[in-house]
Design a protein around this nucleic acid. Structure first.
Lengths: 139, 139
DNA sequence: TATTGTTATACTCTATAACTATA
DNA sequence: TATAGTTATAGAGTATAACAATA
C-alpha cells in the first residue's frame, strides 16, 4: 500500500471520479452535466424556487446559475415564470419533459452507483451510506 | 431526508469538496494545488520517474504535466535531469525543499481529514477506509 | 438602499494538434 | 517510425464587477 492510498481524500476522489465519469456519460444524450442534473433534482424538491435559492443551497455562483437555467430552459426541462409576489425573482418549475429526464436518470444513477459499489456487501453499502450521511450532516 | 441525499455520489462529493477546500487552503502558502501535491507524492514514491510515468499513473495529460513540472521546478520543489539511458525523457527527483513541503502538508492533510471525519467513531473511520479501499482496488 | 437576475469579461484548468529532439 | 517533452491554441467551467429591474 503506497502512501497516497492512505488518504481518505484520494480514495474518495478515485471512487467519486469513477462514478461521475459513468454518470456523465449517461447524461450526455440529454445534453446536461452532473451539476445541471443536481439543479433539476433541487427544483423537483423545491418547486417555485428562485435561481438565488438554488445558488445558495447548491453553492453555485448566481451568475453561473443564469447559464445553467438558460440551458435547462432551452432544452425544455425547466420553466421560468415571474414570481408574482416578488417580480425580481423567477418561480422555477420542472416541465413534464424535465421530470422524465430526472426520473430516468435517477434510475441510471442508482444503477451506476451499484456497479461501482458492487465489491461491497449489502451491510457495507448500508454502513457507507450511514457514515457519509453522518459526516455530511455536520458539515 | 431529501432525494438527492440518497445518492452515494452526492454524499461523496459533499464530503470530498469540504476536505479539498480546506486542504487547498493549507497548500496555498506553498503555491501549489492538490494536483501538484499529488505529483510530489508520486515523485517521492517513484524517484527518477519521467513526466510520462506520472502522466499515465495519475491520468494527467502529458501537456498539462509540462506546466505542473515547470511550476514545481520553478518553486525549487522538483529537479529535472536528463535520463542518461534515454535522453528524450527526464529523471525527476524531489529536492530537500520539496520533501519538506510534502511532509509538512502530509501532516496537515491527515489533520484536515480528521477534522472533517470528527463525527465518526474510530471504528467507523476504520470501516470507511476499508470500504473505500475495497472499492478502489477493483476499479 | 438592498436584492434578483443579467451581461461582459477574465481566470483556471485541461485538452488538441503541430513541433523538436532523441530513439 | 515511434516516443518524451514542448508550444500555441482553444475549450470547458467558474468567478468578478458593473448594470437593469424590482423591492
Amino acid at each position: 500500500m503506497e502512501k497516497w492510498n492512505q488518504s481518505y481524500g484520494f480514495l474518495l476522489g478515485k471512487v467519486l471520479q469513477k462514478m461521475e465519469i459513468k454518470f456523465v456519460e449517461g447524461l450526455s444524450p440529454f445534453e446536461i452535466n452532473a451539476r445541471q442534473y443536481g439543479v433539476l433534482l433541487f427544483i423537483e424538491g423545491n418547486p417555485h424556487c428562485s435561481q438565488k435559492d438554488i445558488s445558495e443551497k447548491l453553492q453555485i455562483d448566481r451568475t453561473t446559475m443564469v447559464s445553467h437555467i438558460d440551458h435547462l430552459e432551452g432544452l425544455g426541462y425547466v420553466e421560468r415564470t415571474k414570481n408574482p409576489n416578488d417580480r425580481r425573482s423567477y418561480s422555477l418549475l420542472l416541465t413534464a419533459k424535465g421530470k422524465d429526464v430526472l426520473d430516468s436518470r435517477w434510475e441510471f444513477l442508482t444503477h451506476t452507483e451499484s456497479e461501482i459499489l458492487a465489491p461491497l456487501s449489502e451491510l457495507e453499502k448500508q454502513l457507507l451510506k450511514e457514515i457519509l450521511i453522518k459526516v455530511w450532516i455536520t458539515l
